[in-house]
Design a protein around this nucleic acid. Structure first.
Lengths: 190, 190
DNA sequence: ACAATAATGCTAATTGCATTAGCTATTATA
DNA sequence: TATAATAGCTAATGCAATTAGCATTATTGT
């Protein structure tokens, strides 16, 4: 029986499963069960097995995040753009915990493809900074700083949950203000 | 034959293996081979098997990092303390990539023990901020910001490596200055 | 329309690691 | 010194990933 599956459809289902159950629960067996096929059949779509599935999830996640950030930043500049970007990133992670895990996974395989995967987001952050008066080098630093903060904050948030006397929302906004204020002070620095 | 092993000794070896080969390569089989024993024997030390080993590595890593940070901030205050703390954190991660992976692992098991594991470092960051004029709430925010930045930056660095026209060292220092400058501006904010 | 080919699914079998059960030797202790 | 706890072992099980080879369904060129 043919199930009429395609790589794309499978990835979408797999992403949903990863988001619901966590990436570790996304086994070929579980995915096959969900799709109504047998595990070996998945190799017809993913020659590289589980590894390739994870890789594809990673790429899918970055593409999706790129898209959402791009949309969010349209028509905005400077602080407004950075704020929109950061909130979009954080929201994305909260809605796609499993995909986010997969996206952090690109360390194990250092191919061109993987390096480019996250390059998209880096590029968007970079372009969002275009209207600031900074040197190119300062922009690179700033991109890295923002990226590190976003990734770190999101990871911690995903791991730790959201129970605390001091809400994480406030901390996020606070940190964002701090970073923006730091950027504003940047002019004179070497 | 008795190999004269103890939980502590095994954890130290396991940590070394994880740092050298990556956490994923640290299987019970590989560890047993390294120790010159058979995999089932490990259950005499780690009742919970692989899970418990990972948990212990996580705790070991946090304790070690706590110790190094504590040492590094002794006799320092304000910016000096924060700078020392951040550099120590980053250096630790670069020298203990495998342990760092394990330390990020605490999401899966949400026990008291695990929550306290990272609480130590949080506490040290918090205390390092003691000489700033901030409200307690601002301190909580600042701790989270620093922690997010450190974790994010380190993760990216571990994943991506250190090849680039613009050196990561510079970006790290730049971000640190930006954050410190943001902190300095903080006074008036609500 | 129809043969050839590619695509997609299956079953059966293999591998490798984690884990459990039960046995044995060694160490520590009462 | 007898006894209990410790730390190792072998044998066996289970589970997921993977590979090989077969069967069926689509697709495509003529």
């Amino acid at each position: 029986m043919k199930a009429g599956l395609s790589k794309e459809k499978i990835i979408i289902i797999a992403a949903k499963m990863a988001d619901e159950k966590g990436l570790a629960e996304l086994t070929l067996k579980a995915l096959a069960d969900e799709l109504g096929i047998k595990p070996p059949s998945l190799y017809k779509h993913f020659n590289g097995g589980l590894d390739e599935l994870n890789k594809e999830l990673m790429l899918y996640g970055w593409r999706m995040l790129d898209g959402e950030i791009t949309k969010a930043v349209i028509g905005k500049a400077k602080d407004d753009a950075v704020i929109a970007l950061c909130h979009t990133y954080r929201k994305f992670v909260s809605e796609h915990k499993g995909l986010f895990e997969a996206m952090q996974w690109y360390n194990m395989y250092q191919s061109e493809e993987h390096l480019q995967a996250s390059a998209g987001s880096v590029d968007i952050i970079y372009r969002s900074l275009s209207s600031y008066e900074m040197t190119d080098e300062q922009k690179v630093h700033t991109v890295r700083m923002i990226r590190a903060f976003l990734q770190g904050f999101s990871t911690i948030e995903v791991h730790v949950g959201s129970n605390y006397p001091v809400p994480l929302d406030d901390s996020f906004d606070f940190a964002l203000r701090t970073i923006l204020s730091g950027i504003a002070d940047m002019k004179g620095d070497e």
